[in-house]
Design a protein around this nucleic acid. Structure first.
Length: 154
DNA sequence: GCCAACGTTGGC
DNA sequence: GCCAACGTTGGC
């Protein structure tokens, strides 16, 4: 199956691409939005991810990650002391799922949200039209365009 | 730090 | 099943 493309948001001051680089890979835990969860359940190993920093100035795509483990139940939903604990989730039928992603690379030139909004060929990006979705699909042409804007080769 | 936009919850 | 109230996200 063809590689697919995604964008994942992280609050820059909570878990940045530098954190991902030093960890190598991470569990994308804490997603508590059904649409974002559904997107993660569609991800396949090898899919490529635009890594986006929200809540920084300016917000921007700052690098790339790769899906290295396909979806499995988010363990934090069953940990009562965890801030992502969900008492309504049943261990026989978990509500929240996640994937593991690995660091790929950091851009020399981040691509800001402002630049994405200014680029006509990116006007259909989910990022532009549904700013609150934290895990979203990206078209190959969009992915390639963002890479080009970052001065990178696919 | 503010607040608009959006998603979820829960009363009816 | 509707929708008001509430909580959260994220740009500014």
């Amino acid at each position: 199956m063809a590689t697919r493309y995604w964008l994942m948001k992280s609050e820059a001051d909570v878990y940045s691409i530098d954190d991902l680089e030093s960890d190598g890979k991470t569990m994308w835990d804490g997603v508590r939005n059904y649409q974002a969860r559904n997107n993660m359940r569609e991800m396949k190993k090898g899919d490529r991810v635009l890594y986006y920093h929200s809540r920084q100035s300016p917000p921007a795509v700052v690098g790339l990650a790769t899906v290295v483990r396909e979806s499995y139940p988010d363990p934090t939903q069953f940990e009562p002391k965890n801030k992502y604990f969900d008492e309504k989730s049943d261990s026989e039928d978990p509500r929240w799922w996640l994937v593991d992603v690995a660091f790929d690379r950091k851009f020399d030139e981040p691509v800001s949200l402002h630049d994405i909004k200014d680029e006509p060929s990116l006007s259909e990006m989910v990022l532009v039209n549904n700013s609150r979705l934290s895990v979203q699909p990206v078209k190959k042409a969009e992915f390639d365009r963002v890479l080009k804007m970052a001065g990178e080769k696919a």
